[in-house]
């Protein structure tokens, strides 16, 4: 099972849209896929029309008293399941802290899922916290949406520094441009120049598109209601890149 985390320190950068659409594409490609909505705001859960509630809450999950598998809900799509968000996830940090080796905890909880899923996508809350640290230890790769602005690039650097300090050498960081507005000169400039300087950067930019915003209204991944739009095509080629980089589907 490949564990991918859609993550950024900042909020509002297209994290959930990426998690939901990439998960949908993974499932469509025949991989048994699970999304875990770790964000207490529950946007991914909302997109899948599921109630943001988990029996036993975050405490039950972190302590291991609740088997993850019993809390999973099928989405409307074949091969694609969801572990919903819960409001109690807002205190996940505190719950983790009470455990032994809190940063390794998530990895341990996820282990049994490998039998049932090929791909796990974690939709992470925006922050640097114990939860994100635990995610870094559990994940094979971070998918990091980056809005092409100078400030966003700085936070990306911070992420690379953090990985180096924690000696997380096996963790791939895969940034990609998100919410790219071609009308803005700065966006165009950064998107054209940066990938040449940073090899880890994925090549496909995700455009700023009204269809992505409409996901909230339609309560569905793009593939369900706007499969032919530019953003859907961009996610598709982004997924191909991610799958190729991480060797998904090539055991």
């Amino acid at each position: 099972m490949k564990v991918l985390a859609s993550y950024n320190i900042k909020g509002g950068v297209g994290k959930t849209a990426a998690a939901v659409n990439l998960a949908w594409l993974s499932a469509r490609g025949g991989h048994r896929t699970l999304v875990w909505d770790l964000d207490p705001q529950g946007a991914a859960t909302y997109y899948f029309r599921v109630k943001a509630k988990v029996k036993g809450g975050g405490r039950g999950l972190v302590s291991g008293r609740r088997a993850l598998d019993d809390l999973i809900k099928a989405t409307d799509f074949a091969n694609l399941d969801l572990l919903p968000a819960d409001f109690s996830y807002r205190s996940l940090d505190l719950l983790l802290e009470q455990e032994k080796k809190p940063t390794r905890r998530l990895r341990k909880i996820l282990k049994p899922l490998a039998e049932h899923y090929d791909v796990l996508l974690l939709d992470c809350p925006p922050s640097i916290s114990l939860v994100s640290e635990a995610v870094f230890f559990a994940a094979d790769a971070l998918l990091v949406p980056v809005i092409p602005t100078t400030l966003s690039l700085r936070t990306l650097d911070q992420l690379f520094d953090f990985r180096a300090r924690q000696q997380l050498d096996d963790l791939a960081i895969l940034p990609f441009f998100s919410m790219v507005d071609r009308r803005k000169g700065l966006h165009r400039e950064i998107v054209e120049q940066l990938p040449a300087q940073r090899v880890e950067m994925l090549k496909t930019p995700i455009p700023y598109a009204s269809e992505v915003e409409r996901m909230g209204l339609e309560k569905a991944p793009l593939g369900r209601f706007a499969a032919r739009c530019g953003a859907a095509a961009a996610f598709e080629s982004l997924w191909d890149e991610v799958a190729a980089r991480l060797n998904i589907g090539n055991p």
């Binding site: 469509r28 490609g29 025949g30 991989h31 048994r32 074949a78 091969n79 090929d118 589907g249 090539n250 055991p251």
Partner: peptide
């Protein structure tokens, strides 16, 4: 329980399937 799937027609031999969970 769904164990593996693919969006392609069935093949004759296991080794004809594209690499992935179905072939595995």
């Amino acid at each position: 329980t769904l164990l593996a799937s693919g969006d392609f027609p069935a093949k004759v031999f296991a080794w004809d399937f594209p690499p992935g969970s179905l072939r595995q």
